[in-house]
Simulated assay, not measured.
Amino acid sequence: MRALVQRVSEAWVTSAADRGGPVEEVGRIGAGLLVLLGVTHDDDADTARRLADKLWHLRIFEDADGAMNRSAAETGAGVLVVSQFTLYGDARKGRRPSFVAAARPEHAEPMVDTVVDRLRELGADVATGRFRTAMQVGLVNDGPVTLLVEI
């Protein structure tokens, strides 16, 4: 499982059932974490829960001295989780990425749901995108801070 994590001052996601169709905002947070989440074939519920724990306790928020020593758990930061199969795109050869390492939606969606459920169990205020729709993500990256987290 891969997560591209961005510390944001705000982030939002819109969704349309079809490209060009009506768009609605489906998730928004203030200060917190935008998590673009990719799932591969051998990820399971345990992997998803471990990733959620890591994200919730990842120390990337500033303390009183300006050092990144605080976590979302400590700050009460919001979390916006958006599925992102392209995180498993492989563009090492040629010009068209291969997505064979990305899990099929039937496997990926329950894994994303498990991450979201676990974050909520931990006390996170979680917003999400909408699986299998055309989404647009907006954000104001704070720092900027962007990390790739893999479990």
Results as ranks from 00 to 15, higher is better:
Val39Gly: 01
Thr40Phe: 15
His41Arg: 12
Asp42Asn: 09
Asp42Thr: 10
Asp42Pro: 02
Asp43Val: 09
Asp43Asn: 15
Asp44Leu: 03
Ala45Tyr: 01
Ala45Cys: 06
Asp46Arg: 09
Asp46Lys: 05
Asp46Val: 11
Asp46Pro: 04
Thr47Tyr: 03
Thr47Pro: 03
Thr47Met: 06
Ala48Val: 01
Ala48Pro: 03
Arg49His: 06
Arg49Tyr: 02
Arg49Pro: 02
Arg49Lys: 14
Arg50Ile: 03
Leu51Ala: 04
Ala52Glu: 05
Asp53Met: 14
Lys54Trp: 07
Lys54Cys: 04
Lys54Tyr: 08
His57Gly: 11
His57Gln: 11
His57Thr: 15
Leu58His: 10
Leu58Tyr: 10
Ile60Asn: 07
Glu62Ile: 02
Glu62Gly: 12
Glu62His: 12
Asp63Leu: 11
Asp63Gln: 10
Ala64Leu: 12
Ala64Trp: 02
Asp65Cys: 11
Asp65Glu: 15
Asp65Gln: 09
Gly66Phe: 11
Gly66His: 08
Ala67Phe: 13
Asn69Ile: 03
Arg70Cys: 09
Ala72Pro: 14
Ala73His: 14
Ala73Glu: 00
Ala73Val: 08
Thr75Pro: 07
Thr75Leu: 12
Gly76Pro: 14
Ala77Pro: 13
Ala77Ile: 12
Ala77Gly: 15
Gly78Gln: 04
Val79Tyr: 05
Val79Glu: 00
Val79Gly: 09
Leu80Tyr: 13
Leu80Gln: 01
Val81Thr: 04
Val81Ala: 08
Val82Gln: 08
Val82Ser: 05
Ser83Lys: 15
Gln84Thr: 02
Thr86Asp: 00
Thr86His: 06
Thr86Cys: 06
Thr86Ile: 07
Leu87His: 08
Leu87Glu: 02
Tyr88Ser: 03
Tyr88Thr: 01
Gly89Phe: 07
Gly89Thr: 06
Asp90Cys: 09
Asp90His: 10
Asp90Ser: 08
Asp90Ala: 01
Ala91Phe: 07
Arg92Asp: 00
Lys93Ser: 09
Lys93Glu: 04
Gly94Met: 03
Gly94Trp: 05
Gly94Asn: 06
Arg95Gln: 12
Arg95Cys: 08
Arg96Leu: 08
Arg96Val: 12
Ser98His: 08
Ser98Thr: 14
Phe99Asn: 09
Phe99Ala: 00
Val100Glu: 08
Val100Asn: 05
Val100Asp: 05
Val100Ala: 07
Val100Phe: 12
Ala101Ile: 10
Ala101Cys: 03
Ala101Gln: 02
Ala101Ser: 13
Ala103Gly: 05
Ala103Pro: 13
Arg104Asn: 15
Pro105Ile: 01
Pro105Val: 02
Pro105Gln: 04
Pro105Cys: 04
Glu106Leu: 05
His107Ser: 01
His107Ile: 07
Ala108Glu: 01
Ala108Thr: 02
Ala108Val: 10
Ala108Phe: 10
Ala108His: 11
Met111Ile: 14
Met111Glu: 00
Met111Val: 07
Val112Ser: 05
Val112His: 06
Thr114His: 10
Thr114Phe: 00
Thr114Asn: 02
Val115Asp: 00
Val115Glu: 02
Val116Glu: 00
Val116Cys: 11
Val116Trp: 00
Val116Met: 11
Asp117Thr: 15
Asp117Lys: 15
Asp117Leu: 03
Asp117Cys: 13
Arg118Trp: 05
Arg118Phe: 04
Arg118Tyr: 00
Leu119Asp: 01
Glu121Cys: 09
Glu121Gly: 05
Glu121Gln: 12
Glu121Phe: 10
Leu122Lys: 15
Gly123Met: 13
Ala124Phe: 00
